[in-house]
Simulated scan of single mutants.
Amino acid sequence: MSIRDIIEGKKKWRTLVARVKALPQDYQLVYKEIQKYLFKVGPVEIVEDVGLLEGIVELFEEGASMGKGVLEVTGSDVAAFCDELIKNS
């Protein structure tokens, strides 16, 4: 991994964090819990791939723009939602 890759990765991460901070509070809370869950139980390849987290943020942005609550987007069992993400990735 080159210095340029590291810098680009940090830029992507900061952009993602800014997008999460723009979400409604309930979405932010659930996103942080999903992130913790993925970092604990997810395979290393999934955790290192920011694309999965970006996909979650996009899903949350869409749900928030439609006026849905976060649990309407993920379902009431957020851990099962995460497990499905891991399985499908």
Results as ranks from 00 to 15, higher is better:
89 S>N: 14
85 L>E: 11
7 I>W: 02
25 Q>H: 11
32 K>E: 14
32 K>V: 06
4 R>I: 15
3 I>E: 14
21 K>Q: 14
76 S>P: 09
42 G>Y: 00
78 V>A: 04
39 F>V: 14
65 S>C: 00
72 E>G: 10
18 A>G: 08
36 K>W: 05
87 K>P: 00
54 E>L: 04
45 E>Y: 06
6 I>L: 14
50 V>R: 02
83 D>W: 05
55 G>V: 01
4 R>P: 00
48 E>F: 05
87 K>L: 13
54 E>S: 07
16 L>F: 00
78 V>G: 03
13 W>D: 11
82 C>E: 03
67 G>F: 03
79 A>F: 03
79 A>C: 02
50 V>H: 04
4 R>D: 12
50 V>E: 10
75 G>I: 02
28 Q>N: 07
48 E>T: 04
72 E>K: 07
4 R>M: 12
71 L>N: 03
43 P>L: 02
33 E>A: 12
35 Q>V: 09
37 Y>S: 05
75 G>C: 09
21 K>L: 09
27 Y>K: 03
33 E>R: 15
1 M>K: 08
24 P>W: 08
60 F>S: 07
30 V>I: 12
56 I>T: 08
54 E>G: 13
16 L>H: 04
4 R>L: 14
42 G>P: 04
1 M>H: 10
45 E>A: 12
47 V>R: 09
46 I>P: 01
56 I>D: 13
11 K>F: 11
21 K>W: 04
59 L>W: 01
4 R>E: 15
81 F>C: 05
19 R>Q: 14
66 M>P: 00
32 K>T: 11
40 K>E: 15
31 Y>R: 13
24 P>G: 03
80 A>F: 04
76 S>I: 05
51 G>S: 13
47 V>Y: 01
76 S>Q: 10
49 D>H: 04
52 L>S: 09
50 V>K: 07
54 E>Q: 10
82 C>D: 13
42 G>W: 02
78 V>I: 10
60 F>Y: 11
7 I>T: 10
68 K>C: 06
15 T>H: 07
58 E>I: 08
33 E>V: 02
58 E>N: 12
79 A>V: 11
71 L>A: 00
69 G>C: 01
35 Q>A: 08
86 I>D: 07
80 A>H: 09
31 Y>E: 08
7 I>C: 02
73 V>H: 04
16 L>I: 01
35 Q>I: 00
41 V>I: 10
